[in-house]
Design a protein around this nucleic acid. Structure first.
Length: 421
DNA sequence: TCTGGGGTCCTAGGACCC
DNA sequence: TCTGGGGTCCTAGGACCC
């Protein structure tokens, strides 16, 4: 048995925890650069469109008294930790699936407790400790647990925010009313195709023959069908697998038109990516950089391109990674465009000591590289990000993002006491 | 004027091997 | 006239997730 626990309107709720005056009022959180709406409080759902740009909804926000926040990921990550710690205390095995969701293994719990009761305990404990509300969906497969969670949120008042789907009749009744596009693993493209085939509800999908689904779609959807029937295909992954790639990219607050500005931005992303890489205790061989103009602007030609290099010897040294990324940039830069976004990607990872040195590599490994990087990371960890940085990043970046409605650092600076007890 | 960021998995096709 | 069979590895692209 699995329980899927997720926080209601996570980002928006994190903001209202520290602004009790906004409880019960429409609140939204915006993506970087205050671009799109990425989280809405229950009260905001009626007149705010998820994923739509802020500038198009500004007027409606004003009319309905919606409070908007720039995203404050430091705060959300910290609140997420508190929620996950609580879940880990209450359940023997937890898979943290995203910043606001976790699957809990309930196979043992089942023998000694009523599952719905247990779900309610989780809810009240998380609420008490963090002032955040979670929905709990319980079932014998992950896909069904997701669906149960969906129901717990949709009919929160009737269900008390907890739905146990172990009963087969109950399962069928729910599947029959859930549109197929709300099933975990069924996105826009696939639901359109399914609808055209007359498959409209989750129940319809669960009744398809697996080989028909495999023929018209793929094994991924076949697994979803099996899971909907109660046959588990996905296990609980308690330990996060090692990363396969690291991406660092950002849209610019203002369009970038000058090479020097872009070079600084790429240098910054490369340095951040290298830092993340060392955080994973990995070395990489693949480095790429990309730039692009806005895909939305109609009166200028679109340009987007990327270039990559494959090193002979894996590295974790920021200097190597910055070097490689800068070289990539020089290959794809085109004068005369108004660039909206750029980024750096790392891949082809090797663990420490596993890499084979190359006899013909002209760039011999740098002396004391590991030691230097350790000191760099330690300093930045202790004294705050950006204490020590590379000259290539520039001193006064003009390309930084806009966050005009940012909330204070409630939990990571001076207000920690609020939540301690 | 203004539209996010970071991931995973699967498949098909090409290059190459014997 | 007629040109095999079985495999691996890599990459790009498409789908999905939050």
């Amino acid at each position: 048995m699995f329980a899927l626990c997720d926080v209601n309107s996570f980002y928006a709720s994190c903001e209202t925890v520290f602004r009790p005056d906004l409880k019960g009022k429409p609140v939204v959180v915006l993506s970087n650069n205050d671009g799109c709406v990425i989280s809405r409080s229950a009260e905001a759902k009626a007149f705010v469109v998820m994923g739509e740009p802020y500038f198009r909804q500004k007027e409606a926000f004003r009319r309905h008294g919606v409070t908007a926040f720039s995203s404050n990921y430091e705060l959300y990550a910290d609140m997420s930790d508190r929620v996950m710690t609580t879940l880990e205390e209450m359940s023997p095995c937890v898979e943290i699936y995203s910043i606001d969701e976790a699957f809990c293994d309930l196979s043992g719990v089942r023998n000694c407790k009523d599952l719905t009761e247990f779900g309610k305990e989780i809810r009240s404990t998380v609420l008490k400790r963090t002032h955040l509300t979670v929905g709990v969906g319980i079932a014998q497969t992950k896909t069904l647990a997701k669906l149960a969670n969906h129901a717990a949120k949709k009919w929160q008042r009737q269900t008390g925010g907890v739905v146990d789907l172990s009963n087969v009749d109950r399962q069928r009744r729910l599947l029959a009313v859930v549109p197929v596009e709300d099933v975990w693993g069924v996105g826009r493209r696939i639901s359109r195709k399914l609808n055209a085939m007359g498959i409209k509800t989750a129940l319809d999908l669960s009744e398809q023959s697996t080989w028909v689904i495999r023929k018209h779609f793929n094994v991924v959807l076949e697994r979803t069908v099996r899971e909907l029937r109660g046959e588990p295909c996905f296990e609980l992954d308690e330990f996060a697998p090692e990363k396969q790639e690291i991406v660092c990219s950002r849209s610019f607050g203002d369009r970038v038109t000058e090479y020097e500005q872009m070079r600084q931005a790429i240098c910054y992303y490369a340095a951040r990516a290298a830092e993340k890489l060392r955080g994973e205790h990995q070395h990489c061989r693949f480095i790429s950089a990309f730039v692009k103009t806005s895909p939305f602007s109609l009166n200028e030609p679109y340009y987007g391109n990327s270039a990559s290099v494959k090193l002979l010897t894996p590295t974790q040294d920021s200097r190597d990674i910055i070097n490689a990324a800068s070289k990539c940039l020089s290959r794809i830069w085109k004068e005369g465009h108004r660039y909206q976004k750029a980024g750096v990607m790392l891949g082809d990872f090797f663990s420490q000591g596993v890499a084979q040195l190359d006899l013909f590599d002209e760039n011999a490994p740098r002396k004391n590289s590991g030691l230097l990087m350790d000191i760099l990371d330690q300093l930045n960890a202790k004294s705050g990000k950006g204490t020590l940085y590379f000259a290539g990043q520039g001193i006064k970046p003009q390309w930084q993002m806009k966050r005009e409605m940012l909330s204070p650092r409630y939990t990571t600076r001076y207000c920690d006491l609020l939540l301690v007890r």
